[in-house]
Design a protein around this nucleic acid. Sequence first.
DNA 1: CCTTCTTAAATGTCAGACATATAAAAGTTA
DNA 2: TAACTTTTATATGTCTGACATTTAAGAAGG
Lengths: 248, 248
Amino acid sequence: MKSDKSHHSDLSAYIADDIRNAIVSGELDVDQRLPSETELAEHFEVSRPTVREALKRLAAQSLIRTQRGATGGAFVRKLRFEDAYDTQVTTAALLLSMNAVSFDVACEARFALERACAPLSSTRRTADHLATMRAEIHRQSQPGLSDEAFCASDVAFHRALVDGAGNPVLSFQLAGAVEGMQPLMNMITFTARSRARIVELHTVLADAVEDHDGHLADAQLAVLEEYTRSLAVDVMEQRAKAVLQKSE
Amino acid sequence: MKSDKSHHSDLSAYIADDIRNAIVSGELDVDQRLPSETELAEHFEVSRPTVREALKRLAAQSLIRTQRGATGGAFVRKLRFEDAYDTQVTTAALLLSMNAVSFDVACEARFALERACAPLSSTRRTADHLATMRAEIHRQSQPGLSDEAFCASDVAFHRALVDGAGNPVLSFQLAGAVEGMQPLMNMITFTARSRARIVELHTVLADAVEDHDGHLADAQLAVLEEYTRSLAVDVMEQRAKAVLQKSE
DNA sequence: CCTTCTTAAATGTCAGACATATAAAAGTTA
DNA sequence: TAACTTTTATATGTCTGACATTTAAGAAGG
């Protein structure tokens, strides 16, 4: 950790960068304690509030955790997949909404990535993953389900499929693609008929995964993608029609 | 934005969550100005430093930007794909190193995801993407290249392939998988022979993409994955041997 | 009308203080 | 001696009030 800064405006950002680099480069190990806030303040020649702002930046990225008390301080945090999950989903959702990503583009990305998992999941899925998929299918066929609950169940189903690949890196990456897309999916209104169709597709998909048939699973996801996109098109058309009628 | 907090220890985290929810839910629009720090302090009934710590947390996630001066303040920031890129890569790299993810697992995830892009890229790649791929192949065949530079060029090549799919969501997701894996890839020492082999594989891959042959591109990536893994195995074996010799 | 000066509002930074949590050391008692 | 209690030191969490700096808009002057 060097201290240069000189004429930087936003010292806390500079200090955060400096410490972050030390963590990423491995200069600071997991669970290692950082110097106390007072010591950091002296080292960087800034005040304690400024150091604290820098530490909060790092905490926001789950790079450190803090403990109060006598042996307390800031410690390099072991970044777990679960920790990165939430941020990943939030970021993906914001990216989609703020950049006006079309349903088609998001859908394409999501299914392309998911299809990458299908063959692996067909090989490795445990009974547990399969049971989750079946349970979610069952929930999706319940009549009184709200559109949002249906969507949530859909996400749970696909997540089980992805997790079935048994590769935490894949699961992490897919979190953003699948869960982050949920807000977009929530725009769709699922009629009884479309729900029945989706349950049907999901069932074939689950069957394929159960039979270790990666090719069928992949093909089924392609069908599901096409159907999902057609549903979105329907919704858009209906909305356009509603706007037209209103203006008459 | 409600104020409850009650007995929360870590007010800045609570406040950051509160504002973050307002942004994610769309309650606050892009480029909308947040209340001034003083006003936020009054609203949440905390001091200004505490508010500032909360704002720095949000800034660390690129959710807000701040401007100084008379009309300054904190503004909801439009999260761009480029902004999320760096964080994505850093997070992925840290996840791999801190969770002792094996080369095989990371490699499998990376190539599975990349293969998801191959068919799309074969259809849509522009001349630009192709030119980048060719240029990187050329660089990789230069003799005096360091292992790190070779790796960097490899990343650039694959990134061009992914970008060829023309789907920013895919490109964003793959950034983590491909670039985040670079530290792991840097462990490999590339001999002249293995470099020649990789250049060869890359060339066939580029040819396939040029010919809009998605199937061949996909197959070629599978070959490349297998070869990459075999290289890693070689490195591990040599290291194990070195350790044995040392202990004799 | 244009330029320059002033002013006000906001963030950026600082210093010093107190509150609180926590583990280890010191003290106390059975 | 052993177990429990109290004290103490150290760290983060928070507050107050102040000053520095940046910046846009209004005021003053040519």
